[in-house]
Computed example of a mutant assay.
Amino acid sequence: MIKHVAAKGREYYGSRFEVDDIDRPVITKLLAYFLRDDDVAAAEGLDLNKGLLLTGPIGCGKTSLIRILRLLALPAYKPVIKSCREVCFEYGNFGFEILQKYSNRSFEPSTSTPRAYCFDDLGMESLINYWGNNFNVMAEVLLSRYDLMVNCRMLTYATTNKNAEELEAIYGPQVRSRMRAMFNLIAFHPESRDKR
């Protein structure tokens, strides 16, 4: 399966795409998660009822891997990838309606199936000024999606190059606590090379 991931990577990102040995543990965990392999997931310490928080250095391939591995996922686990900056810009233009779009109205049309989102570059967005108030859009989205995870099994994915302390400084201790409950943490090795 890792060879398949490497082949898909070359197809999408060009002949320079390769899977480094240092990244194999991360890819193994992601494969177990997206293929819903109970045995491997349990051996890797993953809870298939939670989402994913994929962390690592800038340029290590977090977003690229999510794009490749989402192709293997069943529809309910196939995330729509959305940049956190884009979500915040949408909020700046349309206001609280955007919070609903990514939370209470985040269900597949004509069904009660929750829509999975992958929020890319979590922690890199700015506070948004809306009607004179600075607002932490992603903190509100995460809090709302936590409630929906508890009540509707809604899964959330995110990529970030921030560590836990940096995320807490941006979003506060309440969001950090909810993130522990929402996410399996999968971390690239700090020495994973920049692949861009």
Rank of each mutant, 00 (worst) to 15 (best):
A6G: 09
D21M: 05
R153T: 06
A73L: 10
F89A: 09
E11K: 09
C88V: 03
L143H: 08
I66Y: 05
V19P: 00
R70N: 09
G132V: 12
I58G: 09
K82S: 11
P190K: 10
S177C: 06
L122C: 08
I2M: 14
R105S: 11
S110T: 11
V40E: 13
V141E: 06
M149C: 04
I81N: 05
V19T: 00
L30P: 04
M124G: 14
A7M: 13
S126T: 13
A139T: 08
G132T: 12
P109A: 10
V150E: 14
R176V: 04
V19H: 00
D147R: 12
I68G: 01
A181S: 07
D147A: 14
T113D: 11
G9L: 03
G14A: 01
H4K: 14
N184W: 01
Y171V: 04
Y12G: 05
G61K: 00
F94D: 13
N136F: 08
A181I: 00
K29T: 01
Q174V: 13
P114C: 07
A181Y: 03
S64M: 14
R105M: 12
A164Y: 10
S144I: 04
S106K: 02
G59M: 01
F89W: 11
L155A: 02
D121T: 07
R180W: 06
N136T: 12
L155Q: 06
V19I: 12
S192R: 01
H189C: 04
